[in-house]
Write a protein that binds this DNA or RNA. Sequence first.
DNA 1: TTGTAAGCGTTATCAC
DNA 2: GTGATAACGCTTACAA
Lengths: 346, 346
Amino acid sequence: LPPNRRVTSQDVARLAGVSRTTVSLVLNNVSGPQISADTRQRVVQAAQDLGYVPDAAAQALASRRSQIIGIILVRSPQQVASDAFLNHMLAGLIDTVQKRGMRLLIDIVAQEHQEQAYLELVRAKRIDGLILAGPSFDDRALVALEQQSFPTVLIGELPGVGFASVDVDNRAAAHMAAAHLISLGHTRIACITNAQPSYAAAVERLRGYQEALYSAGLDFDPRLVRYGDFDPASGYKAMHSLLSDTPRPSAVFVASDTVALGALAAIREAHLQVPEDISLVGYDDIPFALYTHPPLTTIHLPAADLGRKAGELLFRLIRHETPDAWHVRLNTYLVVRQSCGALPGS
Amino acid sequence: LPPNRRVTSQDVARLAGVSRTTVSLVLNNVSGPQISADTRQRVVQAAQDLGYVPDAAAQALASRRSQIIGIILVRSPQQVASDAFLNHMLAGLIDTVQKRGMRLLIDIVAQEHQEQAYLELVRAKRIDGLILAGPSFDDRALVALEQQSFPTVLIGELPGVGFASVDVDNRAAAHMAAAHLISLGHTRIACITNAQPSYAAAVERLRGYQEALYSAGLDFDPRLVRYGDFDPASGYKAMHSLLSDTPRPSAVFVASDTVALGALAAIREAHLQVPEDISLVGYDDIPFALYTHPPLTTIHLPAADLGRKAGELLFRLIRHETPDAWHVRLNTYLVVRQSCGALPGS
DNA sequence: TTGTAAGCGTTATCAC
DNA sequence: GTGATAACGCTTACAA
């Protein structure tokens, strides 16, 4: 025998004095057949002695399950760079995946390549389930997945399609943010979105802001809206433009902390004070929001939970269990720090 | 025939009127045997017509290559959360991996579980190559990889072991940062590290700072050193402690932008000004460094390139090519913004 | 309770 | 140039 050969289940079987079948049954804890405690022990011992690790490819080929789940992040390089959120979500997801003894395959693709990216993964049976995180999805491509009912979970906005999803209620959260400013007496409240209006989440947040105004009997003035683009630079630009409006807004809801950092810089550059001259509410509660100047009042998003829930939901689907809910909505809440003040004279 | 059966290479062969062997040869562009252009064309066409996608598990089992590379991030959940760097590196790595038609399997593990995490991946032949990113590695476990010369690349500090690695010269970079402060006339310069001294990178950066002092003929005063711990909170605490020293340092090198954000907050809280009262140099050049108040002078690290280079190096190893260099050192440079001022009277 | 044997869908080694 | 045929290492009916 070649000395450095791979240890196979055959070797384990031989050492334990049983068949490969038994080895497989024991090591996979198959529930059907009862294995005597003695046999089980011998097999486990033999496997350990030999340092046996099953070959993943062989296992996948025979069992038709790869024990890998895939996550596809539909994002531009620029977004990846400034997404202080991603880490958290990934950490939550990986945590869940590990607990199930599975692995995570990750891919970042541009909007226009998403289809080929996940179809290959699925068709090659490389993954047992798929998590899609991105702004929007190409319906045409998703149809294929839906037809073969491939286990899939969306993180983000819910399109009309029938996929399971995990998200926060962006509209309600934005409503909460704007309502906070209104409660402080502000009436001229601007909005800088997190992204361009082609992104569903951006539209939802804008709508929440709008609804908060209406609920309070305030007018919605489209001239007070600017579109951010994921990064601080876009927030800087948007705020700069907003500050040249007259009369100046006394408060701004910035639908992304990252974008808000740029907005803060623009305000400082104009020699204005937060919150004395302008109140600001952010969105996301990134770790840095506590350390801006001043600390940013913002909407807290449960990033890690988003990843965790998506993972749990997906595992249910993979095991053909009916999930408690096909569309999970996680809670957000307002974190009051020091970037908002009452409107003078209110 | 069952209507919804998987399309196999057998089907392609049948449609093209050739054998499975030929299909494999054509689709994998095997160089040895010459296939006639006509046959090649027929096979390609048939594969496309049928929407054939090779089964990943079967391919892996037969070819002994999974086409997956693994990255293991050795980090605590806390570090993952505040690591504004990770995204960049991952994006760079994924970019490289995609170009090679491979996939990336990602895992985050705590220091104490690293061994089992990557040994399973390697032993199960789940991955063709491994990238390890973390503060330090358990030599005992790495020995196994080294012995079977499993393609492995380290991102980070270079231990004594013989693995290929990609890193920046932390010491030289820190030297540069401290030298900048010295050039502005500062003599009482403190240092807040990025992490505890158990982390090699933290020690290297501290040493670079120290060497810069010596080079300038300044004394190294250990009482001016504080240890950060990855997050802004640790920077806040460290700076707070530093500010109660007398005489106060006139400048601080903070070996992590993330930690520096906390330090900035502590300085503001003490009603001091940057750079008027205290100069600050950071490290990493995270996207937010440009938007702090004031914009942070810092050391730029090529995060995405780190990922890219690690990927390229790894592919060389996988293909048994001798790499140009086993230890790649990427360049850093000082980005001068507005957090440093000349010492009054110098 | 355990063993036998038939796949799983490729790749790779030879002949032809 | 192309086609049999044997691995690859495991899971899983089914048989004993």
